[in-house]
Design a protein around this nucleic acid. Structure first.
Lengths: 174, 174
DNA sequence: GACAAAAAAGTAAGTACTCACTTTTTTATT
DNA sequence: AATAAAAAAGTGAGTACTTACTTTTTTGTC
């Protein structure tokens, strides 16, 4: 991975995340990245290949984020970590990445709800362990909640309050 | 509003909602609507004018949806109606409309979170009336929840279960 | 380590085509 | 025949992508 290749990816991420895939031209990416337009096609074959490279990189980050959670044996700790995700799970440097991922969910091709299945299963297990009456629905509710909080932060620029986290934790007696 | 004008709007709504504003060309809209491309510009000035016409129509529908809710005097009834919104508030004929609106939230220009302020205020009032400890946070939580449910249905094609509605209602002792 | 050969990275100027939008011509209505 | 609605036929600018070529980096041989 050369310098310019990385610069292209970085610039494309910035533009795709903030302006949208279809609204950004390859010439614009090239200009902003300070490379010739042809280089994009040399390295990524076509415009979609550029997007796919970003999506693949994001998939790695998702599994990195989920991995420690899936191996927990304390159900309370699972819930605590899931609630914490929108607040501290996304570092400033990753904001663009996640913004693009959530934006892409609106393009049928990139919307894969089943990717959240492992998380959903783990949450269902956690609520079951804790004796909740409807563990599946509780799991769905919580996963949806964390989802919207991430969107609020990334899309709407809402600064999530610590007090709101405490509020959510208290809902689960944590 | 002539027949052809309506056909253009109808077609544009369908395409914008499903493929995205930037991914759809005016020539495609014209072909699918069975009119000449120039007619779009005669009636709506430019492509953005076509989108704006759809957004304006949607704003009317939002206020129609919120109006009866805002005038309720029974706090429990407010919460019940808000929970019910994702399940029965959106008729089949309106699905495309709402899909476009939610999709547009990802375009900074069309994202107006403050539009939900009246709903949020009403919910805060309702939770206060019912003696909840943190009415503002409760209001935010519930409005976010209804939001994701709508998205699940429109974007992910999830069929919302009646049992899940009962589950949510029971959370508020309803 | 010097040095040529090969491979990879990079560029500038095109390609054919599509875009949003405009102008001109035809059709329908009164 | 006048007028408005619609279609048809444009337009320049911009699109994703290719081509022909140059520069830089890597590799193998002495």
């Amino acid at each position: 991975m050369t310098n310019k290749q990385e610069k292209i990816l970085e610039t494309a991420l910035d533009l795709f995340a903030n302006e949208g895939y279809n609204a950004v031209s390859t010439s614009k990416i090239a200009k902003q990245a300070g490379v010739s337009e042809g280089l994009i096609f040399r390295h990524f074959k076509n415009k979609k290949g550029l997007l796919d490279a970003l999506v693949k990189e994001a998939e790695v980050r998702i599994s990195v984020l989920l991995e420690p959670l899936l191996s927990l044996s304390d159900p309370k700790e699972v819930i605590r970590l899931v609630i914490n995700m929108p607040f501290e799970g996304i570092s400033a440097s990753e904001v663009q990445f996640w913004k693009l991922q959530f934006k892409l969910k609106w393009e049928a091709e990139y919307n894969k709800p089943e990717k959240m299945k492992p998380l959903l299963d783990k949450l269902t297990w956690a609520f079951q362990e804790l004796g909740y009456a409807a563990p599946e629905q509780e799991a769905y509710l919580l996963s949806q909640m964390t989802d919207t909080l991430v969107v609020s932060r990334l899309r709407d620029g809402v600064e999530l309050q610590e007090s709101y986290k405490e509020f959510l934790l208290s809902k689960y007696g944590l």
